[in-house]
Design a protein around this nucleic acid. Structure first.
Lengths: 210, 210
DNA sequence: TAGATTGTTAATCGATTAACAATC
DNA sequence: TAGATTGTTAATCGATTAACAATC
């Protein structure tokens, strides 16, 4: 199976959420590409292509079986695989992420929380006891952690990334505004909130002038 | 000037951050499109096109004037325009956003924080006293607020959006996983963190199989 | 059977990259 | 002047949409 590109992943997630949140209205147990397309305002051909890309087959005159769609998307995107993760940076954002239960449906299980600040060690934030960085390597190993969630200030981000590289982490979900340098085999997703704000300030300014 | 598309906004922000964070290394006061392209790993033609799109002119053999670039990007993206905003949802995420100082450089000023939960009213979170929703309309008017930042649970999001529509908000920065229904003249940016997680779980799963 | 919906190929569209003349 | 770098047009690439035969 080919690698799904970012847009396809995004659309599949969107379709999946739509179906999941509106299960009760699809009493037939099936859904057509046109129904999905109407909601997601993508083209219906696009929906069929996306589904074909994850091996989903529909039936002419009937559509796609809802439980098959849910299962196939969960499988293709990896939601059916449990991933353990740690949060580094026991601030408000780190706490929010650690406490958020919505990620569990995507297979994410946060097992520990760390901070460099001695004053925070031992506090319970987002349901986890904050531990010192020195414990990190042992915990990563113990829980076979593959993902680190970085919610530290920009100036601390690279130093911590270097520790994670040494500890052979597989993936980093980076909420700091820093640009991280790491080997290519480490999957990095930068969550740049400044981008969202930029979109808004740009369009607000534009509207002002119109 | 044509509307900048999302990718262009993203690249301009990236270029801007790169230049800003590395000012000391450009002692000549100028920078070439090739230097930027090397860091951002975009094509250098793309950098020139992006700059041309915001009216920036470079000089052959010299490059682009750094202070001109900074000024032009800030102006084009609306960073030089102050925008007031309110945060709705006085949870950890709302607090993190309200307290984060990095957005000030983009012209964002948070003036108030709201929550539906009576137990939270009066608390100071992220530097702001939490106020009841009933105060919202008056404060929006008083501070000429154009943007609302939504950090409430999914099930509360649409109801609050409806209030914001009535209060004639211009833009909503939506951190809830809900799909908001609103008129087209309201600018909505959905910050779907589940997308980032999806990218990571997908690639982690893929790596597993390879 | 008739007709709705899929699956897939072909056409279109838009964004990215290559090429190169203009310029300082 | 020679040559580095811009600005811009043309070519390429990839993603989206249209068209339509296959199918139940």
């Amino acid at each position: 199976m080919d690698t799904l590109n970012r847009q396809t992943l995004k659309r599949l997630l969107f379709d999946y959420n739509f179906i999941n949140n509106n299960l009760q209205q699809f009493t037939s147990g099936t859904i057509s590409s046109a129904q999905i397309a109407e909601f997601s305002n993508a083209d219906e051909t696009q929906v069929r292509k996306d589904f074909a890309a994850i091996g989903l087959k529909g039936r002419p005159r009937v559509g796609f079986d809802i439980s098959e769609v849910i299962h196939a998307v969960r499988h293709a995107l990896g939601f059916d695989q449990n991933n353990t993760a740690i949060v580094i940076g026991a601030g408000r954002l780190g706490g929010a992420i650690a406490a958020y239960e919505g990620f569990i449906a995507q297979g994410l299980h946060i097992v520990a929380m760390f901070d460099v600040n001695p004053a925070k060690i031992g506090l319970v934030i987002g349901g986890h006891i904050v531990q010192p960085m020195e414990q990190m390597k042992a915990i990563l190993h113990k829980h076979q952690v593959r993902m680190a969630i970085l919610t530290v200030p920009a100036q601390a981000a690279q130093e911590i990334t270097d520790l994670l590289i040494k500890a052979e982490i597989n993936a980093i979900w980076n909420f700091s505004p820093a640009h991280l340098v790491a080997p290519n085999n480490i999957i990095i997703r930068d969550e740049r909130m400044a981008e969202g704000l930029t979109e808004l300030t740009y369009h607000l300014k534009k509207n002002n002038k119109d």
